[in-house]
């Protein structure tokens, strides 16, 4: 990074007391954020871990979590990009209101999100009868679990992509246009490519949020092994039956998420 010399000079200029305070706060933050993860790992019953993990329900839940989180990333990308584009590139009255509204699912209490989804897409929801006549049923289905995960995770995609779009020099798009590029080619080769890190961050955040999603899913889609019981739901059920299994599953979830996050934003995390 070109800025490194400047930023390190700035940090060296900080007076000692400020450095001590910042260092102490950083240490506290690290303890708060990292210690629970380590503690969870320490509590896991490693001696018979394999036997516990290879119970049929566990692998079902893992597979389902993969399907649901990946599908909701794809869906979030397909739906979040147009919204991010409208927010970043169009000026119209009510844009800030629209931004607030589409980001709202981030702050919904878990169950409220699920009830909201039921109110909209449940069989007695606003779209319920329309969807029924089309033969679509979301509650208690994997599709419903995907919708729930997308509902809560798509805002992360929108936020990332919007800031990414804003950071692209729009004159690059002008330059591409003078070189004969069509709108689609500009979108594909200049905009999407220019999104780079923002796209990676958006995918990572969305995927992580979808993977850990619990409240909206249990409320909207219920919990059915192999259909809607994702890893977090399985962990929640197991914790009251066998804490060891639950912790092990939790560790699996965390380790899996960490691996994917590292792979997606390796440059950012390892720099």
């Amino acid at each position: 990074m070109k800025q490194t010399p400047t930023s390190s000079r700035v940090s060296r200029r900080l007076i000692p007391s400020a450095r001590i305070v910042l260092g102490a706060l950083a240490f506290i933050a690290a303890v708060l954020l990292v210690l629970p993860v380590i503690a969870l790992g320490a509590r896991a019953p490693w001696s018979d871990a394999l036997a516990r993990l290879f119970r049929p329900g566990t692998l079902d839940a893992l597979r389902l979590s993969l399907v649901v989180s990946t599908a909701s990333v794809v869906l979030s990308l397909a739906l979040g990009f147009p919204i991010a584009w409208v927010l970043a590139r169009c000026t119209f009255p009510g844009r800030r209101i629209l931004r607030t509204l589409v980001l709202l699912p981030m702050v919904f209490p878990p169950v409220v999100g699920g009830v909201a989804l039921l109110a909209a897409f449940g069989s007695h929801g606003i779209c319920g009868s329309t969807m029924q006549s089309l033969g679509i049923r979301l509650p208690f289905t994997t599709a419903g679990a995907i919708v729930a995960a997308t509902f809560v995770s798509c805002p992360f995609m929108i936020l990332s992509l919007e800031s990414g779009l804003q950071s692209i020099d729009r004159r690059l798009e002008d330059a591409a246009a003078t070189l004969g590029a069509s709108d689609w080619m500009i979108l594909r080769r200049i905009v999407v490519r220019g999104l780079g890190p923002a796209l990676r961050a958006g995918i990572a955040l969305t995927w992580a949020r979808a993977l850990g999603e619990f409240g909206a899913t249990i409320t909207f889609a219920g919990s059915h092994p192999g259909r809607t019981r994702t890893l977090p739901l399985a962990v929640y059920e197991l914790i009251n039956v066998d804490v060891g299994d639950a912790i092990l599953l939790g560790v699996l979830l965390v380790a899996f998420a960490a691996a994917v996050l590292l792979a997606l934003s390796g440059k950012v995390l390892l720099r």
Partner: peptide
């Protein structure tokens, strides 16, 4: 713009940085 057949070299070049 794309149908004008004008080749412009802009003041700050505007090369596509990721290509």
């Amino acid at each position: 713009p794309r149908d004008r057949r004008i080749g412009a070299v802009f003041q700050d070049r505007l090369l596509f940085p990721r290509m």
